[in-house]
Amino acid sequence: MKKFIFILCTIALVACKEEPKNYATLSGTITNAHDNKTVRIFKDSYEKIITMNDDGSFSDTLNIEEGDYRFKHGDEYGTIYLKNNNVSSFTTDYEDFDSALIFEGDGSDINNLSIKSYLLGDDYFTMDLFYDLDNNALEKAIADYKSGFENLKVQYKNVDSLHLASADKRMNSQIESVENYFNYKIGLKEAFPQGMPSPSFENYENHKGGTTSLSDLKGKYVYIDVWATWCGPCKREIPSLKKVEEDYKDKNIAFVSISVDAPKRHSGSADKAHEAWKKMVAEKELGGVQLIADKDYDSDFMKAYQVNSIPRFLLIDPEGNIVSGDAPRPSSDRLIELFDSLNI
């Protein structure tokens, strides 16, 4: 009798055992969401568009092959490991997309290691490092970065060997990029010595109407912010730039922001790029002189200043000569130190 009951219980357990699902479940919430209210999941020929709720939340199922997928919301991108039968989620803030990104559920250690290791460099490769250009400081920053990366691997233990190898590869690639950027900054300092006549721009469209040339601002110091609507680090400088503009509104200095929004960042449409610039300037109530470059990165002014990454800041004196071809960011105390040294 007992044996018969045992068999019945075993049959019941097997019958109730849930079969593996042939889909992955993905959910999450994005605060301050983009107007398009969608999350696009894609890889190779696969694509799934998930429609978000009004509160920024979303949930859907995806029939997929196991692997690393890209996701896009607005102008921001991320990477997530997905597998059928997994239940995964993430939360973030569109206005601080990468830094606020947190994964939960299945595969979360893989995904969190990926984003945290990507962001880790910001803790060690600071703007001061690229302003001082001290080789000893660079070597120490690289050593500390490697140590921090090893600590991340201890924190996120449930990561397979393939993803660990990929993370190691990305770490070494980032170190190489930092070294190249360090040398690039040295080259900028040598290429644009203080007192050299500044390259000029002519008739850039002004958000308030008409056009503006650099020569229109002669007689004032000119602090230029080269940015774009899709650039996260650029947008993070906006609050600091607004404060500096307010603090120096009665001083002999003009604050100029030049957008290099390009069609390739806006579905290949020059009109969409232009509209994105117009819209953000209005919505964020950006101050100063708001301009858009005539040919984005291919503009003569950008080429002359060797602008190949943004944000980039320039300072020009009242006579039209270069003070700094690679000036400190608004968020850096070094900018105010520079202004003070010039008695602005």
Rank of each mutant, 00 (worst) to 15 (best):
L120W: 07
K48D: 11
L314A: 02
C231Q: 10
A141D: 05
G288S: 15
A165V: 13
N252T: 01
D93E: 05
I50L: 11
P233R: 02
I11H: 08
Q174R: 15
P239D: 02
Y184H: 02
K116Q: 01
Y305M: 14
K220G: 01
W227T: 09
L214C: 09
L26A: 07
D216Y: 09
V178G: 07
Y94S: 08
M52D: 04
S299D: 08
K295Q: 10
F182M: 06
G195N: 13
N252R: 00
H274G: 00
A100S: 15
P318L: 03
D128I: 09
V307C: 04
I186F: 14
Y124Q: 06
S166N: 14
D294F: 09
S88G: 04
N32W: 13
T10N: 14
V226H: 11
N183L: 12
E19G: 06
S88Q: 06
K189L: 00
K48Q: 15
G320S: 04
A273R: 07
F71I: 07
Y297V: 14
F4P: 03
V87Q: 14
L133N: 08
L120Q: 02
E76M: 14
G148I: 05
G210L: 11
G219E: 03
D75A: 15
N63Y: 10
I110W: 08
K303S: 04
F192Y: 06
M127K: 15
N343G: 08
T92A: 15
I102W: 14
D44P: 03
G209A: 07
T212Y: 01
T10M: 15
I253E: 03
D144W: 12
F182H: 00
S99K: 14
Y223Q: 06
K21Q: 14
E179C: 07
N22P: 10
L152N: 09
S177K: 01
F103P: 10
V159E: 06
A191W: 01
A228G: 04
D300C: 01
D326V: 03
